[in-house]
Amino acid sequence: MQDWKRQKAAFASIAVSPVAWLIAFFVLPLAIVWLYSFGRNVGLTEIDISGTFSNYGRALEPLYLEIFGKSVAVAALTTLICLIVGFPIALAITFAQPKWRPWMLLAIMLPFWTNLLIRTYALITVLRTEGYVNKSLGWLWESASGLKVMVGMAPLSTWEPLPLLYNNFAVILGLVYVHLPFMVLPLYAALDRLDRSLIEASLDLGAGHFRTLTQIVAPLAAPGIISGVIITFVPALGAYLTPDLMGGPDSQMIANVIERQFKRANDWPFGAALSFLLMYATFILIALQALRNRKAEARS
């Protein structure tokens, strides 16, 4: 590592453009939003930055607190389901034959490379009333009904398609669909580093697979589990597209409220305050994770 003072010309020619870009097109836009969050609307497009906290006060109204709480709950549930589904997958990849491992990882990653919007649309096409899920369930229902008639019982009532779209269920399913790879990769990275002899020892000493999993594997893989949880939770909390396309009127998440302030309600100061609240929540989570990592490094 060189000190910048010893090579000022080289340092300047390397550093100026990325730092200037970051300040002009990232820090500055965020700073403007931050200032707006302390302002109020005067006129149609004018915003007077008066240093008021009323926008943040409004964000604490029950209506918005409820949406915040709901977003956290939806993101948490999504993360939990991803963990439950993803953990066995990560375990299976870890203990698969080496030649299979890259292919299994690729199979999990490939949908992740596909456009988010298209994955959401694909899910909508199968979940809608005329979609395949409902059609298959309907067919099963009819068959069961036919079977009952055959053995001389009364037929089942007619099949009503399940409302699989435009509700909270759809939002969580969509978020799990989109975020699963986020969970599997850090889990796999943690499990792969695990000392297998510890697992073998636990099994040899008479613990069952489940007990080994909860008392040996899970504690040892805890750092990976936590980073998987944070990596999944953070984007799920700020999700916009999934609740927008798959949610109903009561499944708005925080990002949808922010969007509305900017695109329809035209209340930029309030939207700015909400957007910074979401950002603070994100930063706190990431800072906690970084702190934990540093502590773990210091210990080892």
């Binding site: 970051l22 965020l30 939003v33 953070v234 984007p235 922010i258 700015a272 910074f276």
Partner: peptide, 24 residues
């Protein structure tokens, strides 16, 4: 600080960044 700021665009929620760009 520079290093941290450089990592921010990766972690900031997309909606916040979109809004910032719109305002900017």
């Amino acid at each position: 600080a520079v290093e941290g700021t450089m990592a921010l665009p990766i972690v900031v929620p997309e909606i916040c960044m979109g809004v910032a760009m719109l305002v900017f």
